[in-house]
């Protein structure tokens, strides 16, 4: 098992830059065949967790595939991530990674930037191979008013 924290951090950062560039094949290349992806937010109004996206790998691939057919906001999103904590599970040969996340949206027209969302990534990373692989990503959003929303996973 490779317990080099730097390679785990680089994996998290590479998922961000791949999504920033809308390079979905690069992103999927960093993910396991059993990849699971989920976005949730806790609502203090109704005191419940809400699951806003919940996809396996095949569903993620379909999502990326159908994105161009929809009308979407094309303003680029920039993910700023800081890995807070990496803990290792020797039995499973995995790392659990907590990453603070801020996402900025930059207007195409004029280039003004605003905060789009803040939250955290809770990632499970497999360390069983020569390179770390993302097995599971749970995005917990603090931001819930996302304006007109977005089509691209965050």
């Amino acid at each position: 098992m490779n317990t080099d924290r730097t390679t785990v951090e680089e994996l998290v950062y590479q998922t961000c830059t791949a999504l920033d560039r809308n390079d979905y094949s690069e992103f999927l290349g960093l993910c396991d065949q059993q990849f699971e992806y989920k976005v949730t937010a806790f609502s203090p109004e109704i005191r419940k967790d809400m699951t806003w996206l919940d996809h396996n790998r095949a569903e993620m691939e379909e999502l990326f595939h159908t994105l161009p057919k929809h009308n979407s906001d094309h303003a680029p999103l920039t993910r700023n991530a800081v890995v807070y904590k990496v803990s290792y599970d020797n039995d499973k040969k995995q790392a659990n990674v907590v990453t603070a996340l801020q996402i900025f949206r930059t207007n195409l027209d004029g280039g003004a930037t605003q905060v789009f969302a803040v939250g955290k990534y809770y990632d499970t990373v497999s360390l069983d191979q020569d390179k770390p692989i993302l097995v599971k990503r749970h995005v917990k959003l603090d931001t819930r008013d996302l304006g007109w929303g977005n089509h691209i996973p965050i």
Partner: peptide, 27 residues
Amino acid sequence: RKQREKDAATIWSPFGRNLHEDLLASS
């Protein structure tokens, strides 16, 4: 409940296919 949320998410979450389009057009 999980399945209902999943059904809703495809079209109506802030990341859903339809809601984003409706809100883009109205904005």
